[in-house]
Design a protein around this nucleic acid. Structure first.
Length: 476
RNA sequence: GCGCCCUUCGUCUAGCGGUCUAGGACAUCGCCCUUUCACGGCGAAAACACGGGUUCGAGUCCCGUAGGGCGUACCA
């Protein structure tokens, strides 16, 4: 392993939160760097001063941290490298690889419209390309365009897309320096990736055309072109572009929905990448197995149902104490979480911890877990949901009165005694256990779903349990 | 419009010319377990977009067609 160490980078633009596609791009960069023993750098592409915001930068860093993705070194602000970019533009100008263009926006718009009308691609026609500098208009701040090759083709050897060929005649002379003197994206990216020593560029296919233009700039500068890997995009559940309802949410929204970082990593990794038939794997395995060659080329749809299933798997697999800590940490972000936390005194906390094994078995997200744990902190008289209410008919209520009497006589309030008492009660009244257990569950939890009923009786304790049964033990 | 890319069960995917009567997972349906729900177990249904080639042989290679995506900015 004496080859050049791999350096990848994640380069989001801080114009909003870290959305799911960006999160997966970050994950792939991270996995590849870790897999190869290399480094992953973070660069904030904030050269668009109009749209970049500080809160967005914070949200992106926070999102990455939540996902468990770390980066090497300090995040680099692309804007801060402005001077380095200008130096390179100057160099391009001196070597004849760039030229000043004085075309106005109106002129460019007209050019585009005309080309479209004539069925030609709307490209810059190069009218300033060969203009004699002596004829340059005065009083107009020019932009600087890259002088791209007019003939031949530009070939991208992409690790995911394969060999992609662009005819150079289709790539026009792009602007690399705006009239206000600031560099544009394609120039900045090349300079930064080069200066930061990036060896592998892993990003969305929406950058494929940029890859061709950037490749030309690398060549003009005499710099080696990094290895490219353009990964497919993620679509919404209906196959259309990601929208708010389809998963184009910030990663923090996934935290709020109660998903575990580990589950997110696993799910995201399986979107576009595969390792045979493996579906559930640890982050360590992911790092060991990850490779660019196993990334597919077609776009994937985001499926919350499968995410739910995976998340449920991880919830059950997480040791109770760990899950408890995770839940407590996440409470501030969960719907109803702060209220729930507010009612979590020492006693309720202990009850939650002891009910956790039964609770996590039935929840797919932390949000569902909090919801299902509501009965632990609820105060009498309980409000029942509709399904629970349906279970509490007059007959059931009368039955509960009898059960209450039986349980009240119990000398010890433990699992064995309770189970025996309930079973005996059912037998004595010629009832199936379910006929007793379900109304009992409804009375104790206000729900039709809960941990095992005897566990519930224990967790709530004698007084609270008898109280809740008594509340429902009379006709309504 | 032009350029590039994509197309295997509803969804994510395995498949890298013969081992494919196409495998796995989620979802769906049925059965079992069971105090409910869930978990778990067993089983079922479910796909190579279409049309031409190439080849002894094509899901796998080539070319069209259709559908979809991305790009086409003094955004990134």
């Amino acid at each position: 392993m004496t080859a050049t160490p791999v350096v990848t980078r994640f380069a989001p633009s801080p114009t909003g939160f870290l959305h799911i596609g960006g999160a997966r791009t970050a994950l792939f960069n991270w996995l590849y760097a870790r897999h190869t023993g290399g480094r992953m750098l973070l660069r904030i592409e904030d050269t668009d001063r109009q749209r970049s915001t500080e809160p967005a930068v914070a949200a992106i860093l926070d999102g990455l941290k939540w996902l468990g993705l770390d980066w090497d070194g300090e995040p680099v602000s692309q804007f801060s490298r402005l001077d380095a970019h200008k130096v390179v533009v100057e160099r391009l100008l001196e070597t004849g690889n760039a030229y000043r263009c004085y075309c106005s926006r109106e002129e460019l718009d007209a050019m585009r419209e005309k080309a479209m009308a004539e069925g030609r691609p709307p490209r810059y026609d190069g009218r300033c390309r060969h203009r004699d500098p002596a004829d340059a208009p005065t009083g107009i701040p020019p932009v600087i365009r890259f002088r791209s090759p007019e003939d031949g083709e530009t070939v991208i050897a992409d690790r995911v897309q394969g060999t992609v060929t662009f005819a150079n005649k289709d790539l026009d002379d792009l602007i690399i320096l705006r009239s206000d003197g600031t560099p544009t994206y394609n120039l900045s990216v090349v300079v930064d990736d080069h200066d930061m020593g990036v060896t592998h560029i892993i990003r969305g296919v929406d950058h494929l055309t940029n890859a061709a233009r950037q490749s030309q700039i690398y060549v003009a500068l005499g710099w080696p072109v990094p290895v490219m890997a353009h990964i497919p995009l993620i679509h919404g559940a209906d196959g259309a572009k990601l929208s708010k309802r389809h998963g184009a949410l910030g990663v923090e929204a996934y935290r709020e929905m109660g998903y575990l970082p580990q589950a997110m990593r696993n799910y995201l990794a399986r979107l576009g990448w595969s390792h045979g038939d493996d579906e559930v794997f640890s982050t360590e395995q992911m790092i060991e197995w990850f490779d660019l060659d196993a990334i597919g080329k077609s776009a994937a749809r985001f499926d919350f149902v499968k995410l739910d299933n995976l998340n449920g798997h991880y919830m059950r697999a997480t040791p109770d104490d760990e899950l408890m800590a995770l839940l407590l940490d996440t409470l501030p972000h969960l719907p109803g979480g702060p209220a729930f936390a507010g009612r979590l005194d020492a006693k309720a906390r202990a009850a939650l911890r002891s009910a956790l094994p039964g609770l996590k078995e039935r929840a797919r997200t932390l949000t569902e877990l909090v919801d299902a744990a509501g009965f632990l902190v609820a105060t009498r008289p309980l409000s029942c949901d509709d399904k629970a209410l349906a279970l509490l008919g007059d007959e059931a209520r009368a039955m509960l009165a009898g059960l209450h009497a039986s349980l009240e006589r119990l000398a010890t309030w433990d699992a064995a005694a309770l189970e025996q008492a309930v079973r005996e009660f059912a037998e004595a009244n010629e009832l199936k256990l379910g006929k007793v257990a379900q109304p009992l569950r409804a009375a104790l939890t206000g729900r039709t779903t809960s941990p095992g009923i005897f566990d519930v009786l224990i967790v709530l304790g004698r007084k609270e349990s008898l109280g809740r049964i008594a509340d429902q033990a009379r006709p309504k």
